[in-house]
Design a protein around this nucleic acid. Structure first.
Lengths: 239, 239
DNA sequence: TGTACATCAGTGAACGCGCGTTCACTGATGTAC
DNA sequence: TGTACATCAGTGAACGCGCGTTCACTGATGTAC
């Protein structure tokens, strides 16, 4: 089951060795990701991965210097996979509200289709593992996309904020810093509300995937739809 | 470090054996909970627990027939500990909004003080472990308390719903069933909004504890305060 | 194009470790008379 | 209150397992001339 897809354009000037290396690197990540499903992040085992690939466990060390490095690679891939899905969904629409809904729906779709990868990045921290700096960039793609839509909506007046709360100074400062760092030009209240919505989205996804909705809003489809529009109104989208 | 606190009132008519048994049962759970901190749910080991208690690993089997049973006990204890904290906070106030804020603050306090137990019940599901039915009751104490406050607020008109959305029939049915099962007399919209708030609360807590707020609303105290009141307004509390 | 050497992927054995669970046992505690 | 038997907590050895990582090695691929 090794997919041997040569992408010639990317392989120009690469030796067979280099091609083989990047292919096997991908296969290892793929098999490892599949194994997350049965064992969870904590049970991810280099030996099991090697076994499935029919190679000696020691060989994996030519590709990832340790188990934690493999984990890091999986985490980054998961964030990027989610980021791709969400950004593509946002790019697929012009109206800010449609983009908003696109993001929410794509995030849920991805989460349901990638349960274990979702748990890997939004579930419990893995004991003894410290995420290196490289995971930060991929990790903030979703909130960036959300803030970007808020920016759009604000500029085009699809979003208005009536009764803006006065934030306490320190909170206002944090919000201003977030707006600055993300190059987004929206009121501080909107930043804060956006982050509330962002946390609501993933809280809701975690609840759905981790079983907290069993016995209440289960199936969760309609409730999710309701949350999409209700939270859109919450951040200031005018109906 | 064995706390030997004899609660005479509870020990009336119990043999020394029975007392010793329930004490050791508690000690095992205590040590196990402490070990969650270093190893996580997946790394919880009967042998390690036995070692710390200075007993043979096989002896633990007199108290918990398997590792999963110990896990279940820890999960139930965690839910109950959180439930106690939240219910006590709710009971400590009369005004619905004060009770609301009490619940939110107590939940956060508990989560921060019991990181690993929080991860155990709101983090990634443990691979290979299926929560038995006994965890359901303790598991819904927080949402029940929230719904109860919404009920109070609604009855006393501290909460009003302007512009109530029309829910699609199937969603309305789910909401009505939740209201019925929890013996709470509030509009269906309010049920749905309450569940959104509930998921926002725990999404926010997970984000804070699992590191998603690093670099944005970090420290999270002020943002949390903001969310408490903003989400209160969201469910219909009138300022 | 051919050869000599350097690089690197992959092997297989080994180290040392911890795990959950079972089992036959010893000895202390509880109970019925 | 004393004795005989039943119950049960705790022991220690054992089974069979999988893990991450290291290391000296073989043999294939790449490179410089």
């Amino acid at each position: 089951m090794r997919p041997v897809l040569y992408d010639m354009s990317m392989n120009a000037g690469r030796t067979a060795r280099e091609r083989a290396r990047s292919e096997l690197t991908n296969e290892i990540k793929q098999v490892a990701a599949a194994q997350l499903a049965s064992a969870g992040a904590d049970g991810l085992s280099l030996r099991a991965v090697a076994r499935e690939l029919g190679m000696a466990s020691s060989a994996v060390y030519r590709y990832f210097p340790s188990r934690d490095d493999l984990l890091t690679a999986l985490i980054i891939d998961a964030y990027d996979s989610l980021g791709d899905a969400v950004e593509a969904a946002a790019a697929g629409h012009r109206e800010p509200f449609d983009r908003w809904r696109g993001i929410w729906t794509a995030a849920r779709r991805w989460a349901i289709d990638h349960r274990q990868e979702y748990a890997l990045i939004y579930g419990s921290p893995i004991p003894g593992y410290r995420a290196p700096q490289d995971t930060v960039g991929p990790g903030i793609r979703v909130p960036l996309t959300l803030l970007d839509v808020l920016h759009d909506g604000w500029q085009s007046q699809a979003i208005t904020v009536d009764r803006p709360e006065k934030l306490p100074p320190d909170l206002a400062r944090q919000a201003a810093e977030i707006a600055r760092a993300t190059a987004v030009d929206i009121p501080q209240t909107l930043v804060a509300r956006g982050v509330i919505a962002w946390s609501q989205l993933f809280g809701m996804l975690s609840f759905e995937l981790f079983g907290q909705f069993v016995g209440s809003f289960d199936p969760t489809d309609l409730f999710f739809e309701y949350a999409v529009t209700t939270m859109a109104r919450f951040v200031g989208f005018t109906p």
